[in-house]
Computed example of a mutant assay.
Amino acid sequence: MIKSRRKLWLFVGLFFSVIILLTLLVAPSRNQLMSGSTFGVAPDGYAAWYEFMQERNAPIERWQKSFKTLQQNYSDNSITLLRVYGKSAQFAVSKTEREWVKKGNTLVNLAFQGRVTEAPFSTSHETDFGAVKIETTRRNTDSFKAILKDDFGAIIWQEKQSEGKIIYVTTPYLAANAYKLSPGNYHFLANLLESSGGNKILVDEYIHGYKDKETQEIEETSNVFAYLLNTTLLIILIQGLVIVLILIFVYNNTLEKKKNLARATANNSQEYINALATILQNAQSRKFIIKTIGEVEQLKLQKKLGLKVGKQDRESLVQAWTQQTKKTPIMLEKLLKMSTKKPSLNDIKLLEWMKQWKTIHQEINFQSSDYDNKQ
Rank of each mutant, 00 (worst) to 15 (best):
V250A: 14
A262F: 04
F188R: 00
A262M: 11
N230V: 00
G184R: 00
E219T: 10
L234K: 02
K160V: 07
T232L: 10
S269M: 11
A266C: 06
V203F: 00
I218E: 14
S269W: 13
L181C: 03
V242A: 12
T171D: 15
L241W: 08
T265Q: 12
I243R: 05
S222Q: 14
A154D: 04
L189K: 00
Q158H: 11
N185M: 12
Q158R: 08
N267E: 15
L261E: 15
T231S: 13
Y206D: 04
Y168L: 10
E271S: 11
N177C: 12
Y227L: 12
Q216G: 07
T265Y: 12
G184C: 01
V250R: 11
I273L: 14
Y206N: 08
T232D: 04
E159I: 01
I246S: 12
E214Y: 04
T171M: 10
Y206Q: 09
G184V: 07
N253I: 04
H208T: 06
N199F: 07
S196A: 10
K180Y: 11
L234D: 13
I207C: 13
N185S: 07
N274A: 14
Q216W: 14
Q239I: 13
N260A: 07
L237H: 04
K257R: 13
I246V: 08
L192H: 07
N177W: 07
K211A: 10
A262I: 05
K160F: 02
E256V: 05
L174T: 01
G184E: 07
Y168A: 09
L193E: 03
L241V: 14
V250T: 13
V224R: 12
S195I: 02
L234F: 07
S162E: 11
P183R: 03
I201F: 05
L174C: 05
A176S: 08
T171W: 00
P183D: 04
Y272N: 09
Q216Y: 02
V250Y: 11
S269Y: 14
Q216P: 06
Q216L: 10
Y227G: 12
I201E: 14
I243W: 01
N191V: 06
H187P: 02
N177Y: 03
F225N: 02
L202T: 04
Y272R: 10
N223M: 10
Y186L: 04
V224T: 15
A154F: 09
E163K: 13
S182F: 05
L189S: 06
N260E: 14
I156K: 01
N191P: 02
A190P: 05
G164T: 01
L237E: 04
K160R: 14
Q216N: 14
S162H: 11
N260H: 06
Y168P: 06
L247K: 13
Y179I: 00
V203T: 05
V244A: 14
T231A: 05
I273S: 08
K180T: 14
N230I: 01
I236Q: 12
T170Y: 03
V224P: 03
Y272K: 08
T254S: 10
L247A: 06
L247V: 02
I156F: 02
L234R: 03
L237V: 00
L234Q: 01
L228G: 04
